[in-house]
Amino acid sequence: MSVGMHGIRTAGDLVLRMQISKKMRLNEAKEYVAKKLGTDVYTLSDEYAMKEIREELGIGTINAVPGQPKGLKAKAKIAELLDIKIPCVDLMR
């Protein structure tokens, strides 16, 4: 709670994806994600900025806004954006 990025509130899910799929250390993963999102490492942990970025890119937020990508649809966008394979997205395709 005290030191976490907090998932889709910010970009925690994206950073963890890079650690799991590419074995990136924390700083490398953050820099990679920030570059792909067109922002900086500081902003990755900013809920206010990340809500706008996530909505604009269609990669899902904590708010279940009708019509906004959620679940598998959001993950398909994340796979494209981060240039990684997401297994359930591959299965869907």
């Binding site: 030191v3 976490g4 990025m5 925690g12 963890l16 799991i20 924390l26």
Partner: peptide
């Protein structure tokens, strides 16, 4: 903020 980590 730039030092926050992730949690598996």
């Amino acid at each position: 903020p730039e030092d926050l980590v992730v949690m598996s």
